[in-house]
C-alpha cells in the first residue's frame, strides 16, 4: 500500500491538472493546470526510478553491486527543462493576447471563428 502512494499522488495531480485545463476560463490558470499535469508526469517518472535498497551509481565508492540505473532521473531532468521552455512560450503568447485583445478570458478569445 505504502509503495503505491507516489502513484496515487500522480493520478490525483494529473486529474487536478486536467480538470483545471478543462474547466478554467483564465489563460494563466489553464497554463498552471498544464504545469500541474507536467508535475504529475515528472513524479511518475521519478517514482519509477526508485529501487528499494539500491544506491547511487558512483563506481569509486560503491559498497555493493545494487546500483540504480539513473535513466529516470535523467528523463525527469530533461522533461523539466522542456516544461520550462513550454511555459515560457505559453506565457509569451498570453502577453501578446493580452496586448492585442485586452483580455485573457478564453470565452472572449474567439476571433478566429468569425
Amino acid at each position: 500500500m505504502f509503495w503505491n502512494l507516489p502513484f496515487i499522488a500522480v493520478v490525483t495531480l494529473g486529474l487536478i491538472g486536467l480538470a483545471t485545463v478543462v474547466t478554467k476560463k483564465n489563460l494563466i490558470k489553464i497554463f498552471l493546470g498544464i504545469n500541474i499535469f507536467e508535475a504529475a508526469v515528472n513524479l511518475f517518472l521519478i517514482s519509477l526510478g526508485y529501487r528499494e535498497g539500491g544506491i547511487a551509481p558512483i563506481f569509486t565508492s560503491a559498497p555493493s553491486t545494487e546500483m540504480v540505473m539513473a535513466t529516470p532521473q535523467a528523463l525527469t531532468l530533461t522533461s523539466i527543462v522542456i516544461g520550462v521552455a513550454t511555459s515560457a512560450l505559453l506565457l509569451s503568447f498570453a502577453v501578446i493576447i493580452w496586448k492585442k485583445y485586452g483580455t485573457i478570458d478564453t470565452d472572449q478569445i474567439r476571433r478566429l471563428r468569425e
Partner: peptide, 23 residues
C-alpha cells in the same frame, strides 16, 4: 493576435499530448 490565438490552441493541445505520450 489571430495567429497567436491559433498557435496557443495548437500548443496547449500538443503540450498535453506530449505529456500523455510521456506517461
Amino acid at each position: 493576435g489571430l495567429a497567436v490565438e491559433a498557435a496557443l490552441k495548437y500548443f496547449v493541445l500538443s503540450t498535453i499530448g506530449a505529456m500523455v505520450i510521456l506517461i
